[in-house]
């Protein structure tokens, strides 16, 4: 029971964390990408469609990366190059992905939505570690995407806080004019962050279809992209904080399934609303966005 719960927590946390780590890079460069939901949905759809017709998970994952990057590229042209309002653009990009995946899904798989399943991604148990009672299955018996996600946590922390590139990235998010004056190329760096984030978010979507649901339904991301936005805020723009917040929200989602099955007096909707309510409380309590990059969300136009 507890073991199954822990496995479920990691499974629920992985796609959120993966997308949130990408969003962290983007936000450090000074951009808020609400289109993250759209990139995740596109990744989910591309991964499943390609894996279904080709029979190859590797091709499916590649397709998810391409789809996520493509959606973020649309966003980047408008937001980074044309300095358009990031919020409205992000919302439109999400609606676009919702519409396109819906239309193509019905076209490819029929109006009936007959189940088209793929085999779940192969698990890679880490030798004897996977046999540790309780923790083994939860931590050391997962598919490659889960390991990749959790390895990214220290990796992205290191890049952002300890490397020259991370310094440049943060300069673009704190003082884009100054960064530009130093010749750092704000446009190029924001594009790079959005491309990497598109790839990660696409993979997060692929996890939903190839590893979790093993099929696609319309709007399968169901707001997880927005939960990833919350994770970045609640995690205070820090990789380790993001991991902790993802696990917390993953636990809330996993609990909700248990409660729904048990039929307890506690409404399960409370747990579904938790990530969003907690984000509001954290934002209100910590005095707004003190930990956020200063130029977050402001379009930058070279003078």
């Amino acid at each position: 029971m507890l073991e199954a719960f822990l496995v479920s927590v990691i499974t629920m946390a992985t796609p959120i964390l993966l997308a949130a780590l990408g969003e962290l890079l983007v936000e450090e460069s000074g951009v808020v990408n609400i289109g993250i939901e759209g990139a995740m949905l596109s990744g989910a759809f591309a991964a499943l469609t390609i894996a279904f017709f080709s029979g190859s998970d590797a091709l499916g994952l590649t397709g998810a990366i391409v789809a996520g990057v493509a959606i973020n590229a649309i966003f980047a042209v408008l937001v980074v190059n044309l300095a358009v309002n990031q919020v409205v653009t992000g919302t439109a990009v999400s609606i676009l992905a919702l519409g396109l995946t819906g239309v193509f899904y019905r076209k490819l798989f029929g109006v009936t939505g007959k189940a088209f399943m793929v085999a779940p991604m192969a698990k890679i148990p880490l030798g004897p570690l996977a046999r540790i009672p309780l923790l083994g299955p939860a931590l050391f018996d997962h598919n490659a995407l889960v390991y990749f996600t959790f390895i990214l946590v220290p990796a992205i922390w290191y890049v952002i806080t300890r490397t020259r590139y991370g310094l440049r990235l943060r300069a673009c998010g704190e003082r884009p004019e100054a960064a530009d004056a130093l010749g750092l190329g704000v446009i190029a760096i924001r594009w790079q962050a959005l491309i990497v984030s598109g790839a990660l978010t696409g993979l997060a979507g692929a996890f939903l279809t190839l590893a979790y649901a093993n099929t696609f339904v319309e709007n399968i991301s169901a707001g997880r992209g927005f939960v990833a936005l919350s994770v970045v805020i609640v995690g205070r723009w820090n990789s380790w904080g993001l991991a902790a917040a993802s696990l917390l929200f993953g636990a809330a989602m996993a609990l909700q399934f248990g409660l729904q099955a048990l039929g307890t007096v506690v409404p399960y909707q409370l747990f579904l609303a938790l990530p969003y309510a907690l984000t509001l409380v954290v934002l209100a309590g910590f005095g707004g966005q003190a930990a956020a990059p200063s130029a977050l969300g402001e379009p930058y136009r070279r003078q």
């Binding site: 044309l82 990009v93 519409g99």
Partner: peptide
Amino acid sequence: GISPELVQVIQALVILIILAFDT
């Protein structure tokens, strides 16, 4: 035989194009 989600694609494109026109 085109699903109604097409309308969302239209909405999104209209928003994106109007934004681009305003730059």
